[in-house]
């Protein structure tokens, strides 16, 4: 068995007055599509924050491809092969869709800091068009990101993340705020990207339809602890998972 791409061991994180994560350990093998679910406040976004370097944990170790990255700032984690799309889409509002993706492409290529050449002649521009086509944003290329719909903004998040050519892609509620049609298209997009690019994907999601349509394995978080990890069938059959969700979700 090969090394897991992502390994968390004994992660604990607290905010003032709240223990957000307690002794969280999990392995995500390379190439897997893993979903993390749990009720509101279970610690899903905090977990993503810890993995991507946004919140350094009080205890525990984060390893990416066998390398200890605990406490690394986000930009270093990204350079090692991680990319994250946010729950509330955070794009660069005063820039166009194209310029948003271009910024990510240049960051990935390591050309961001070049001040002696023109942006209009950067070789990475070709890739931007490809990424916009792949995520269905080509017609919106010249639109300022600030005026995008929530769904388009989430797709721009994905395009930015893909521009970074990650090995590990973290998607925090990729379909939140989307219409059923948009949700369906996004599920297909994620599945396609995951297959074609050999990515390791980790996602959180409230929409159980999305989770069970995509995930190979599911980890259930409850009150900052891991309740269980298993295949969709196993998770579906577990009584304790139902109880966590107070039975208000049809699994």
């Amino acid at each position: 068995m090969s090394l897991p791409l992502l390994r968390l061991a004994g992660i604990s994180k607290r905010y003032p007055g709240v223990q957000a994560l307690t002794d969280v350990s999990l392995d995500v093998p390379a190439g897997q599509l893993r979903a993390v679910i749990g009720p509101n406040g279970a610690g899903k976004s905090t977990l993503f924050g810890v993995i991507s370097g946004e919140y350094p944990p009080e205890a525990g170790v984060v390893e990416l491809d066998g390398k200890n990255i605990t406490g690394w700032p986000p930009w270093k984690c990204v350079r090692l092969g991680m990319a994250r799309a946010f729950q509330v889409a955070k794009v660069f509002p005063r820039m166009t869709v194209y310029d948003n993706v271009l910024a990510a492409v240049m960051a990935r290529d390591g050309t961001s800091w070049q001040f002696w050449r023109l942006t209009s002649r950067v070789p990475g521009r070709k890739r931007v068009d490809g990424l916009l086509a792949e995520t269905g944003l080509l017609s919106l290329a010249e639109t300022p990101a600030a005026v995008l719909s929530q769904g388009d903004r989430k797709r721009l998040e994905i395009a930015i993340a893909l521009a970074l050519e990650p090995r590990l892609l973290l998607l925090d509620e990729p379909t939140a705020g989307m219409s059923p049609e948009e949700t369906h298209a996004t599920v297909e997009l994620i599945r396609q990207l995951w297959r074609e690019r050999g990515l390791t994907v980790m996602l959180t999601e409230h929409d159980m339809g999305v989770v069970f349509a995509l995930a190979e394995e599911i980890t259930v978080l409850h009150r900052g602890r891991i309740l269980c990890t298993g295949s969709p069938e196993e998770i579906r059959g577990r009584q304790d998972v139902r109880e966590v969700y107070l039975g208000d979700i049809e699994l």
């Binding site: 986000p74 955070k90 910024a103 960051a107 961001s112 070049q114 023109l118 942006t119 930015i160």
Partner: peptide
């Protein structure tokens, strides 16, 4: 030149959201 360069482009990204810019590996 700075304005028209990748460096200037990246500065504008940082201006819009410095925290998010870190998640581009910048």
């Amino acid at each position: 030149l700075v304005h028209a360069s990748p460096f200037g482009h990246t500065l504008r990204v940082i201006r819009d959201d410095p925290k998010r810019a870190g998640f581009l590996g910048i």
